[in-house]
């Protein structure tokens, strides 16, 4: 199966981490073992964003309801800026994401990618595939009963 969650650009890794399982992300980050010096540009804060839908699935937008999001921003000692935007209210998770985002812009990127982001992407893909496989097993196969001749 193709790797759906691309982690080779910033948009890709931030998107992957935003809804990643917090326990798994934390474990991978701890195993990676980095604790970079940093300063907060914006300390983690929880808030809401208004989720929009489209009328009829394809028309003009309408407001569906809010979801919780936590965000933060920090800068490493060399000045690299990292942003964390995560679903939910975990400040710890947002902090990890911001640190990884910053480090991914430094020479350790390849190592970090292979030890944290790739396993995370694989886990997400596996979870998605497992659900899709269960859904596929509930697909209806119709068969036609004997029809009367006209």
């Amino acid at each position: 199966m193709t790797q759906e969650f691309a982690v080779d650009d910033r948009q890709g890794w931030l998107s992957l981490m935003a809804s990643a399982d917090e326990a798994k992300l934390t474990r991978l980050w701890q195993d990676y073992g980095a604790s970079p010096e940093f300063q907060w540009l914006r300390a983690p804060e929880a808030g809401g964003v208004m989720v929009r839908g489209r009328m009829g699935g394809s028309g003009a937008p309408f407001n569906l309801g809010e979801m919780t999001v936590t965000r933060c921003a920090l800068t490493l000692e060399d000045g690299t800026v990292g942003h964390g935007y995560v679903q939910g209210r975990s400040k710890a998770k947002a902090e990890i994401v911001a640190k990884i985002d910053a480090l991914m812009q430094t020479p350790v990127a390849d190592d970090l990618r292979s030890r944290v982001l790739t396993p995370l992407a694989q886990a997400r893909q596996a979870a998605k595939t497992a659900r899709a496989a269960k859904a596929a097993a509930t697909k209806v196969e119709f068969f036609t009963l004997v029809r009367g001749e006209d």
Binding site: A46, V49, M50, V51, R54, E66
Partner: peptide, 23 residues
Amino acid sequence: YRTTLPRFGATLPVETGEMACDR
């Protein structure tokens, strides 16, 4: 609780045509 949350903004409209369907 919702009223205590600062509003960070609004999302792009969700594209339900790209939904990973369970049903």
